[in-house]
Simulated scan of single mutants.
Amino acid sequence: MSKDFKKSYKFAIKTSLFITLVLTLILGVFLFYHGLFEFYSLGIFLVSSYLVSFFIIQYRVENFIYKRVKKIYDNVTLLDATTLRPNQITTDMATLTREVEKFAEDKKLEIETLKIRETYRKEFMGNVSHELKTPLFTVQGYILTLLDGAMKDKTVRKKYLQRAGKGVERLIYIVKDLDMITKLEAGDLHLHLENFNIVEMVQNAFDLLEMKAAKKNITLTFDIPYEEAIWVYADRERIQQVLSNLVVNSIKYGKKGGTTEISIENLIKNKVIVRVTDNGEGIEKANIPRLFERFYRVDKSGSRKEGGSGLGLSIVKHIIEAHNEKIYVESVFGVGSEFSFTMEKSKSPSKITTSEKTGNGRKKA
């Protein structure tokens, strides 16, 4: 405390001392010259002069600094003038120093954030451009070839139109995924919540993707036989999309003759966790934090050969978060990956009372 006091009033103390000594010396010479010199009177004058000088100088200095600092706050609108008080001002200008340091730290953080966003924006624009131009150029190439004379050959015409049609389908697929991402991020997608059997949904996903898995001789299976239904409360269509995307990814990056396994486990009283595990190529640790970014690909060349919009995992994450649930990923490169997400459990429809049924409705994402 004493250290702060001496630091704050250093200027006033020294200046008052100089003024007091000078005035006392002048007064002493004057009294001595006129024969009125008294140590007692001179001592009283010295003390009084010092105290008066100190308080006047300190007040004037604080007032002077406050006005100048206030002007700086008013001119530099980014500084918060409401935090400035006259009683905070000292001759070492500590308040202004703290404010400027805080301002500099905030600006530094803001600049770093903007740099990260700018890098992300450039990557995103580059990825969108790449994803769209490939099917566009494909469609354009086939159409120009047909216009240049190939249209007269019926066999070639049909083949090229079919290939151009596939390019258009890919464009539509990408645009639909982009539209869904936009709606999910803006909160414009409505979730139609209902009770359904998650075991049955997983089996449907297996049946739907069985042929795709067979091309790489990948086995789609449960971890154990689920003889009883497990009821959850969510948007059936969106969760079906989540499961399909995760299983497709496990097939896409799985090794030939591998396995994709799904387990459904009780997490807490009202939650279950669904795990999608494969023994494929796995993901390097450095890539895991960016897995759910739009268009981010771990294996740039391989993933493009496999197709897809590059938005699947991003959509999965947004759908799960729209349900106020969590999604997790664990992976060891060269060993395999596990994606898991939580869901709210519900009762079997036969056990739901009439009042509980009327509680079912829609939820905005």
Rank of each mutant, 00 (worst) to 15 (best):
M1V: 07
E227N: 15
I283T: 11
T342E: 13
K7Y: 09
Q140I: 11
S309M: 04
T97R: 10
P135E: 09
K6Y: 14
M1C: 04
N127Q: 07
I262Q: 03
R85A: 12
K70P: 00
I174H: 08
L23S: 14
E237R: 15
T219Q: 13
I65G: 04
W231Y: 12
N195P: 08
S263T: 09
F54I: 01
R98Q: 11
M125G: 00
L311R: 06
Y73R: 09
N249E: 08
G258K: 03
Y233Q: 14
I262S: 02
G257H: 03
N217C: 08
K269G: 02
N217S: 15
F5V: 13
L313N: 07
P86H: 07
S129A: 12
R362N: 15
K345Q: 09
V332A: 11
L184E: 06
T97N: 14
L23A: 15
E293F: 00
V272I: 12
T354P: 01
N204S: 13
S355G: 03
Q88M: 11
G361D: 05
I264E: 05
V335F: 05
V335M: 09
L243R: 13
R98H: 11
P86T: 08
N287P: 00
K159G: 00
K363G: 05
G254F: 14
E101P: 00
S350Q: 14
F5T: 15
P225K: 13
G280S: 13
E293I: 00
K10S: 14
A94N: 07
D4M: 07
E338Y: 07
R60L: 15
A322D: 08
L96E: 09
F37C: 00
R68W: 05
G165L: 00
T259K: 15
L132G: 08
K305Y: 02
K158Q: 06
E112C: 02
E118Y: 01
L267F: 08
Y73D: 14
E101I: 09
L291R: 01
I327N: 01
K3W: 12
M211Q: 06
Y328Q: 04
R275P: 04
A186H: 01
R157E: 12
I268L: 07
M125A: 03
E99C: 00
T155N: 02
N197L: 10
G141N: 12
E123I: 01
F137P: 00
P289A: 06
K183W: 00
L189Y: 10
E38R: 03
E265A: 12
K70S: 15
E210M: 06
D188F: 06
L109C: 03
K269H: 07
T354W: 04
D235M: 10
K159V: 04
R297T: 07
Y33V: 08
K317G: 05
S129N: 10
